[in-house]
């Protein structure tokens, strides 16, 4: 996703560089279209960065579980408590954010 957005942003930048070469009667309209597209892509980029954030978190958990599995180590009660504590904290923050947004 991030790659795709980055490629489009680069293409848009390349096209914007050639804007002065466009016929003068269309130049303003083309600039508006490029600006709107750039804004949309910037918003998409922020969203894609969050996807990366989730992917990173899941990759970190997977790496930890892979290490446990490779060593044959059992999960301790403390580790399970910490995992559930993370769920409760995240759930609390989610519900708070939901209430704050008026939903």
């Amino acid at each position: 996703m991030l790659n795709w957005i980055m490629q489009l942003q680069l293409l848009l930048t390349a096209l914007s560089a050639f804007l002065p070469l466009a016929p003068s009667q269309y130049r303003e309209r083309i600039a508006e279209v490029l600006e709107i597209a750039a804004k949309a892509l910037a918003a998409g980029g922020a969203v894609a960065a969050n996807v990366d954030d989730l992917a990173l978190k899941l990759a970190a958990i997977r790496a930890e579980v892979e290490a446990m599995a490779a060593s044959g180590r059992a999960v301790t009660s403390d580790e399970l408590d910490a995992a559930m504590s993370r769920v409760r904290t995240a759930s609390g923050a989610f519900r708070e954010a939901l209430a704050a947004s008026g939903v």
Binding site: L54, K57, V75, E79, A83, M84, V87, A90, F94
Partner: peptide
């Protein structure tokens, strides 16, 4: 179970 709990927490964090 450990992986599922942590992965779920990560998903809620993103949902937030």
């Amino acid at each position: 179970a450990y992986a599922a709990l942590h992965a779920y927490a990560a998903v809620i964090e993103e949902a937030t």
